[in-house]
Amino acid sequence: METLIAIRDTITVQEALDFIQSPECGGEVIFTGTVRNDTRGRGVTKLFYECYETMALSEMQKIADRVQAQWNIKKLVMLHAIGDKYPGDIAVVIAVASAHRGIAFDACEFTIDTLKETVPIWKKEFFMDGEIGQ
């Protein structure tokens, strides 16, 4: 399995699509997580993401290792953005390619669910009323 794992100020869906292109793959699944303009009914102006980068990259690699052990996935992309992000901005991209679609859906869901549980990345929410939440 080939992997692209990165944490950067700016990430794009296109770089993920470009990476997973492969003649041996017939199923490509892309998940994008974008900044929502509200949290539980409160307006959000922006999110600020920070990470413990060396450990975050190591935990993302562990997720990739688990995907490789569990499914016959050919390509896996995990991108996470850091810094100030505004409603509509992309915060995370997961892309998976395999010969057929079924395992690509499973691996994509496993990857984003596990990333949210184990990777040391934090968001701070800035609300329209001026409050800041963790």
Binding site: M55, A56, H80, V92, K116, W122
Partner: peptide, 29 residues
């Protein structure tokens, strides 16, 4: 607590040369 960039159990020893970090609830994605 992370010791040398790995989640650590309560019993894990901490040495002067270790990189030690406090990891509050994560909220990526």
């Amino acid at each position: 607590i992370a010791v040398n960039r790995e989640y650590a159990a309560d019993t894990q020893m901490i040495h002067a040369s270790d990189e030690v970090a406090v990891i509050p609830p994560v909220s990526g994605g």
